[in-house]
Design a protein around this nucleic acid. Structure first.
Lengths: 311, 311
DNA sequence: ACCGCGTCATGCACACAGCGTATGACGCGA
DNA sequence: TCGCGTCATACGCTGTGTGCATGACGCGGT
């Protein structure tokens, strides 16, 4: 089995580096000094790299160790974001902000937002539910949640909407595909081939269908899968072209595993919106969340600025 | 102890999701079916979230599970990058590309490059040593490594250089600091206050010193630390202003823990360069590495394009 | 010169988590 | 009704991680 690094040990390494002493790190962790000492030995053995320089006056990082610590701290930050995001799913009590989000937003934006809110206002605890766009709107209407985030262009009556950015959909094919060299196709060509798409009701799918319908075209469904990751794998395996959020395809497009193909005469983008009850005054937690998301407190004259996918 | 998620279990979860069956995932992993079953139960208990829907016909993800799987896959990608980067430090045998890099590049660029090279050309194995700029040049000259990456503006004779981008240095202070509100200071003001800097010989430090010297000024050394992370912590604690690569400060500037201050009359940037032996023909592994780094095969008419800090 | 303090490493015993084997419960289809 | 495939549970073992006790060593005060 491909062994992944033990994040707990990496966290201990960071603490040892910061304290400059194995014993002091152990004390802060509530562990014994020998335990931490052996953990560091085990870590060095696993990595086959000398990380620490032990002296009688304490323990300092080797040059290699400094680099590893830096890499480890970014990895641990990613793990923290993951942990906090999962924590928001637990729908527990003592929550300051109750949010409902649609799938694409949950997958790609929510972790960034939760992390940002935690860094700027650590006191707020977010609870988050994942639903499709219609359900999100219902949850906001009924008062089950305080705020919703959706990709669909319209919202029901009684709710007000704040534009928070754009989600750009991208057509992608594997490198060998005939379209890969052309780099551009027409909407009619796109409609003619079986496409890999999400299940019915998904915002991504409806956006594509709607855009084609406005051109008088109908989407040809190739294979339906309920997960973006599965769709990407299928596309890479050459099953067919796929249309997904640019954010979902970021890694694959960057590494060349998939190639972006422009659709010349089809606007494949959709607004990302926050959804709130029109009548009510927004609670402070929601305001804080909206501000880290990129929405100014009240009806601002600011253009749409897509939030960066984070580091 | 703050428990981090177990990456191995997350990897198992991804496999279960892909296979649609606990037993089949177990077989692929060379584990027993009960073992994987228990692991998934443990994972769900730890997260306090229902991830899987078990039927007699197999196991599928719950909607929540799909989101968690997506988050987990990005976390695992980060972990893979970490693992590969650490692997490159092992200086083992059977290596296709031997590189030497300076600290800032090792910390912020190298993991991205290693990951990208792995995705485009998985056969190449990179070995990497971390040294300061002068040592990197020496290692290339002597033939100990095939290619070097440095931040310094000059290279010794006998070596040729390829510009691969720019590293922008940023002056940063904590939010309470008087400079934080002003947003801009002069080079003379910067030179007058004790600065948090890296140890002598560091490229970051020399760049600042050199830029000030060209203005007829001398840097005032406040506190010297051998690690960027330590410097950031010190700056956030209010010990003093710090000048570091924009990449190193990305997270802190984004979350508002540190505030960027412009230095009006001081160009705080330095070129990132690949360093090669002038006489020799470059081996194929080096060419592949340079191409993922952003250098075209041979003397291209392309402007500098800073590579993105990765996802 | 010496002794105490702080540093890290090692030896030993124990607890627990994770694993495999064996077995049970259940639904689907022949 | 029976066989097959699914997942869960029970039991015993092994290995890893832990704490406690102890040892080795340098530095600095007395």
């Amino acid at each position: 089995m491909t062994r992944y690094p033990d994040l707990d040990s990496l966290a201990v390494l960071l603490l040892v580096a910061r304290k400059g002493s194995i014993g002091q790190a152990a004390e802060e962790l509530g562990l014994s000094q020998p335990s931490v000492s052996r953990r560091m030995v085990a870590l060095e053995n696993a990595m086959r790299v000398q990380l620490l320089h032990r002296t009688r006056q304490g323990t300092v990082l080797t040059p290699t160790g400094r680099v590893v610590v830096d890499w480890a701290s970014t990895l641990l930050e990613a793990a923290d974001d993951f942990r906090r995001s999962v924590g928001a799913l637990q729908a527990q009590s003592a929550v300051s902000v109750r949010a409902a989000v649609s799938m694409t937003i949950a997958e790609h934006h929510a972790p960034v937002w939760v992390a940002r809110l935690h860094r700027t206002s650590p006191d707020y605890v977010v609870s988050m539910e994942v639903h499709n766009s219609r359900e999100v709107a219902d949850l906001v209407s009924s008062g089950a949640v305080d705020v919703g985030f959706v990709e669909s262009p319209t919202v029901p009556k009684g709710l007000r909407r704040r534009r928070i950015g754009w989600d750009v959909l991208v057509l992608a094919v594997p490198p060998g595909h005939p379209w890969a060299d052309r780099g551009e196709v027409t909407a009619a060509e796109l409609a003619a081939v079986p496409l890999l798409v999400r299940e019915p009701g998904s915002g991504t799918r409806e956006t594509v269908e709607g855009a084609l319908r406005r051109r008088g075209l109908t989407m040809t469904v190739g294979m339906t899968m309920a997960s973006n990751t599965a769709l990407k794998s299928a596309a890479m395996a050459g099953i067919g072209p796929v249309v997904l959020s640019e954010l979902a395809l970021h890694a694959e497009l960057g590494s060349g595993q998939l190639v972006r193909v422009e659709v010349s005469d089809l606007p494949l983008r959709r607004p990302l919106s926050a959804v709130l009850r029109a009548t009510e005054r927004t609670p402070p937690g929601v305001t804080a969340l909206l501000s880290v998301v990129g929405v100014r407190p009240d009806r601002p004259p600011r253009g749409p600025s897509a939030p960066r996918p984070s580091a």
